[in-house]
Structure formats: C-alpha cells, structure tokens
Nucleic acid binder design. Structure first.
Lengths: 146, 146
DNA sequence: CTTCATTTCTGGCATATGCCAGTATCTGAT
DNA sequence: ATCAGATACTGGCATATGCCAGAAATGAAG
C-alpha cells in the first residue's frame, strides 16, 4: 500500500533528497531547509511573516519556530511594520546575506549533480509538478473536489 | 532561486500534501506518516527496526522516535529477535491492525481524490519518479557522481 | 468613541527527523 | 577463549512542522 500512497512516497523522497542536499551544504553549517528559507527571504525583500509562510506553504507558527535558530545565529532579524504594529517583517542581516552567498556555491554544486544524475529536463518537469501540487488551486481542487 | 531548487520544491510539496492527507485521516486520530508506517510494517511482517528504517529511507534513531507514540498508544510493539539479541522486530498489535484497516478507508478516499484531481497516470508516473529518487542507486549516483 | 470580529504573532505541546555518543551483542582473527 | 572491529539499538540534543490557545492591534459597526 505504501508504494501506492502519493503522500508516503513524497515524504520518502523528501527524506532522501534532504539528506543528500544537507550533506552537500554541511560545510556551510546551514541545513538545506535553512538555506531555502534564507534564499526565499532574499527574494521577497522583507516579507511579513505571514506572507513568507504562505509562500513557503508553511504554518505561520512553524515558520516562527524554524526562524529561531537563524535569528539566534544572527542571519535573520524581525523588524516591526511601521503602519501595522501586528506585522513583523523578516530580513536578512549582513551576515545572513554573506552566508547565503557563500552557501549558494555549495547549493549550485548539489543542484548540478542532481540535474546530471536525474536529467535536466526531467528535473524541470518534476519541479513544475511539485509547484502545481504546492499551489492553493490544487488544495482547493483536492479539498473541495466534488 | 528557491523555485529552481529541487529539494526546496520537494519539501514544499511535501508540506502541502502532508496537510491534505493529514486532514483526510484526522477522524482516525492517525497522522499520515503514522498511517504510512503502520502500512509498511503490515507489509513487511515483523521487520527488524533496521530493515524498516532502510525501507522507509529513514534514520534508525528517527524511526525509533517516530514509533514511540504508536507504541505508547498500543498500535505497535517491539519484540526481541530469538537468535540475535541486538535485533528488535516491529509488529502490529491487534489494535494496530484494526486501526490500520479502519484508517485505510479514509486513506483510500484521499488517494482517490488525489488521483481525480491530479490524474491517474500522472500520479503513477510521479510515484515512479519518487521511487527512483528514494533509491540507494540514486543516492550513489548523486553522491559518487564523477 | 466603545464593542466585537478579524488579523498577526507568540508560546506551549506534540510529532517528525537526523546526528552523535554510548551500550549491548555478535563475529572473525589469533 | 580473547579481543578488536562491526552491528543494532537507545538516549540526548537540535531542527522541522503543525495545532491550538492566547495577546496585541486593527477595523467595522453602531
């Protein structure tokens, strides 16, 4: 049954890929998840916690927990919004940007090896499928599926 | 960068799918991961912890931790091997088998909705790709990739 | 301007995972 | 029989995630 379960298979592959990417990034001291978070923050430019969580398809509180180590290590900081005092924006510190840039080299290498092993086109196709599965549209179609 | 990262996209999709499958199984009180574990144990028939961990592509100690709640709730039990006293086998209790069978209905429904939303063939193809990514062969090709 | 619902975070608790350092066995070489 | 090295777990610590119950701030009514 497990091999027929889309969810179980996805998690299994996540564990595997997580391990190899983690190994690849190990010299940086960052986990693959942390690297992904820093990269996303960098792209979004001071997103509110809520916005970042939505983009990551992550629970807001889970995001908060996950950011703790990065804040503690000085890579990320939270800055309150000027207008709405409920909102906090996430930003990379100078150290965070530097760490992100350095780690990017390790990531690029892992990424290259992945594409070489799995195939460039197949990888791109896979990412497109995963993007689709991560979308709100998919959730709605699945949940509200008549 | 994040959308180009195979690992980040895989995790993102995992979070999404985890949420919808968890929701679907919620009435049973089991998480989708726990259900998957029970199903795998059922298939393997009293596997050693090490064997189960390998099949799940999971760290041995992580498996141990993950089993704790299931043991506590009486769905799973560990039985020492007769020959080799280092080895412990994992087995479903009667309650575990019953819970698995009941929950299977909820799982089948979620699975059906997934396939309807995503497409039967696409789902099967995706699972095949995920199986490939979870394989030791892939890890070797990636790691030792010249 | 109060009141109440809504929105955004924070904190506590629980599961999911992994790494590393033991501990108990087992095995093979001497 | 002995002892070094390999194996199979266990436990402690740390990150990854999620749910739920607050607390703080906003916004919409009246």
């Amino acid at each position: 049954m497990t091999r027929e379960c889309n969810n179980s298979m996805l998690r299994r592959a996540s564990r595997m890929l997580g391990q190899v990417y983690d190994d690849a990034l190990a010299p940086s001291g960052l986990r693959a998840t942390q690297f992904g978070l820093l990269a996303q923050i960098d792209i979004m430019r001071e997103p509110a916690l809520r916005e970042l969580a939505a983009e990551m398809v992550m629970d807001l509180s889970a995001l908060g927990h996950t950011l703790k180590p990065l804040i503690r290590d000085g890579y990320v900081a939270l800055v309150p919004d000027k207008k709405d005092r409920r909102v906090k924006h996430v930003t990379l510190t100078k150290a965070g940007r530097k760490k992100l840039e350095q780690t990017s080299k390790l990531w690029a290498d892992a990424q290259r090896r992945f594409e070489k092993t799995f195939g460039d086109k197949r990888a791109a196709d896979l990412r497109a499928v995963l993007e689709e599965l991560s979308s709100e549209d998919f959730r709605k179609a699945f949940t509200g599926g008549s």
